[in-house]
Design a binder for these strands. Structure first.
Lengths: 219, 219
DNA sequence: CTTACTTTGTGAACAGTTTCACAAGTGCTC
DNA sequence: GAGCACTTGTGAAACTGTTCACAAAGTAAG
């Protein structure tokens, strides 16, 4: 492994590679070229090789990559070799939908707590978890939660994030449609569905005006 | 407006600007400099001006931008001056959660139909919409649906997309954690929550090893 | 009207990412 | 083991997106 910096897009592609390789592994495929992987991920062979080369030398010339080995390496690179303890703040529609999302658990992300500010919800059960009061946020998060998913209305998101950060959490996934500030050293990712719809709106509206404005998102 | 190409990141920022400006407009702010806007959006003044300059000349030198005017312009640029007719395919947890998401409707995205392959769900009501059979997909979509949100399990997503595209829909928002192919001329956007979590995992895992690996997502 | 100050719009410089192109390594066959 | 077909890893080139820096244009005050 060399010490070059790794871009966000590279990390995104690594996730994609891993997902695909896991499927192939289940299908019993043992070896794969960068070209075959690239084709299935909608990228190029050179891109695949560059991405992987940031972390080491995993391929065999003339042969390609061992699927098993690459799955192992990618899981290690992405930090998926361990159990990540996750909490959800906000037991609204989105927050609750995430509680039951099996894909998270499959990759080692275990949702262990869910909070809501609404006293009438506190104590109720959702997908096997009892909704806790936001008053208990600091106490519970301090017990070793790694990642918090923020699914509260936009106007409260920043204050929730501030509390979460001061409770020592260093990874945040934000679903509130607003820009959040976190101190350096805290990783923040945003899922903004309204923004994606607006991007579609833009693509559709402008493709009507300009002759060729096809937009294809990566992976 | 000049004919330069507009990057995905620019479009994303335009959404952000619009959201912020709408808030300021509600607060009665009438005028704003690129620097003030940039600061609130986590970008730079030059970036704001470059983004806007792709579409026209909206500012007044020495003064800044009129909030009202810019809101109008951005809505027009993003194609938000109209009602977009949306359908959701997949009435699972995520699909149903989206039906009740008020933010969509606020920006002009109206969810008018929801489909599921599960016969036992068909006919049931969710958030005021009756779940329809996927057999009716082509017929209903042909009635003028602009955008389809795909919220089905990954292994069925591609076949749903193929049907949706051949029904004439040209905008797709995909929540299935898989890479989809669409023909040129169809706009596809992906929301991949598992991938975002993996990016957090990467950031957290590697910040433990390397001295300074703070990751701050834009927006 | 003139001066001082503010802010835009944009060409040019810079930085980051992707693609190209090819030497070097590997397996297979004869 | 020599020749052939294939594929990797990577420096260099091309491309894309961001930041800089400044002329031009506007406001405000005296």
């Amino acid at each position: 492994m060399n010490g070059k910096k790794v871009s966000e897009s590279t990390v995104g592609r690594l996730s994609l590679y891993l997902r695909l390789l896991s499927e192939l592994q289940a299908d019993g495929v043992s070896t794969l070229s960068s070209d075959a992987l690239a084709r299935r991920c909608g990228t190029t062979a050179a891109q695949v090789r560059k991405d992987l080369s940031l972390f080491g030398t995993f391929g065999k010339r003339g042969l390609g990559y061992s699927v098993d080995e690459l799955v192992t390496e990618l899981r290690s690179i992405l930090g998926l070799g361990r159990r990540w303890r996750v909490a959800v703040v906000g037991a609204g529609r989105i927050g609750v939908a995430l509680l039951g999302y099996e894909d998270f658990r499959k990759q080692g992300f275990y949702i262990e707590a869910v909070f809501d500010a609404d006293r009438t919800k506190v104590g109720q059960e959702r997908h096997g978890l009892v909704i806790q009061s936001e008053d208990e946020l600091e106490e519970v998060l301090g017990g070793g939660i790694d990642i918090v998913i923020v699914a509260v209305p936009a106007q409260w998101a920043q204050s929730v994030v501030d509390r979460v950060v001061s409770a020592g959490v260093r990874g945040i996934l934000n679903f509130a449609p607003t820009k959040l500030d976190v101190p350096a050293g805290v990783a923040l990712k945003n899922v903004n569905m309204a923004m994606e719809l607006e991007a579609l709106s833009y693509a559709l509206a402008s493709s009507g005006k300009r002759p060729r404005a096809a937009v294809r998102a990566r992976g």
